[in-house]
């Protein structure tokens, strides 16, 4: 119950925060501030945004954007690995969260079968992506890359504006770490070595990892959209 409420609120809150920030960026510089007026107009905007998703053209644009980004960042066959990972991840996250939030029994039946199958593919593709991309997100590479300039984000902890690539890198490593924990907890629960309390730990590790994986994916996605 705690997990359901917490994860739901967290994911919705992150999504709202991200979209609110994106909304503010569309405003003229002098109007970019947190105010009731902006919040109201944001809500109107998000409502319109929601309905606009019913239009196929929006989906086309989104997918085009995604493909363009993927082709830019992955060369040759590796782009297909990325597509496969993304597809698996969308199913894993949506099925996992939907059942966790709205079905008291949790994930079961055919969605569970697909979840297991997609989970295996996700683990494999994530490993490949990690092989291919880990070096790009190492701190020294980040500093050496030419992406440090451009629109950044405000870090309240460091009290300064940081380049967008940093948020991408943090999202990437959180995504990888949670993916690792997701795979490890799945494997652990299937091996005949761990007793019931360990199974509980694996179960909780799996679902909390999933939530933070989704959060990192949202932040990562936001960071790659211009």
């Amino acid at each position: 119950m705690l997990f359901g409420i917490f994860s739901f609120v967290l994911i919705i809150a992150i999504s709202l925060r991200v979209t609110f920030g994106r909304y503010l960026n569309h405003l003229p510089e002098e109007k970019r501030r947190i105010s009731l007026e902006n919040f109201k107009s944001y809500l109107r905007w998000i409502a319109g945004w929601k309905f606009s998703f019913l239009k196929l053209s929006r989906w086309d644009r989104a997918i085009d954007y995604f493909i363009k980004w993927a082709k830019k960042n992955f060369s040759g066959w590796t782009v297909w690995v990325f597509y496969l990972m993304s597809l698996c991840y969308v199913y894993l996250a949506s099925s996992g969260l939907f059942f966790a939030w709205f079905v008291p029994r949790g994930l079961f039946g055919f969605p569970l079968l697909l979840h297991v199958a997609a989970g295996a593919l996700f683990a494999i593709t994530l490993t490949v992506i990690l092989f291919l991309k880990a070096r790009h997100y190492l701190p020294e590479r980040l500093n050496a890359s030419g992406e440090l300039s451009g629109q950044g984000f405000w870090c309240p902890l460091l009290k300064k504006s940081l380049p967008r690539i940093y948020i991408q890198a943090v999202s990437f490593w959180i995504f990888v770490l949670t993916g690792f924990l997701l795979a490890a907890s799945t494997l652990g629960s299937m091996l005949p070595y761990f007793n019931y309390p360990a199974q509980i730990v694996f179960f909780n590790l799996h679902r909390w990892s999933a939530v933070f994986s989704v959060v990192s994916a949202i932040l990562g996605l936001d960071s790659i959209i211009e």
Binding site: A120, A123, I124, L126, T127, L130, F131, A134, V176, G179, F180, A183, A184, T186, L187, M190
Partner: peptide, 12 residues
Amino acid sequence: VLAGCVILMGLI
């Protein structure tokens, strides 16, 4: 396969 993935990811 899963164990292989976990080991590789873990090592990286």
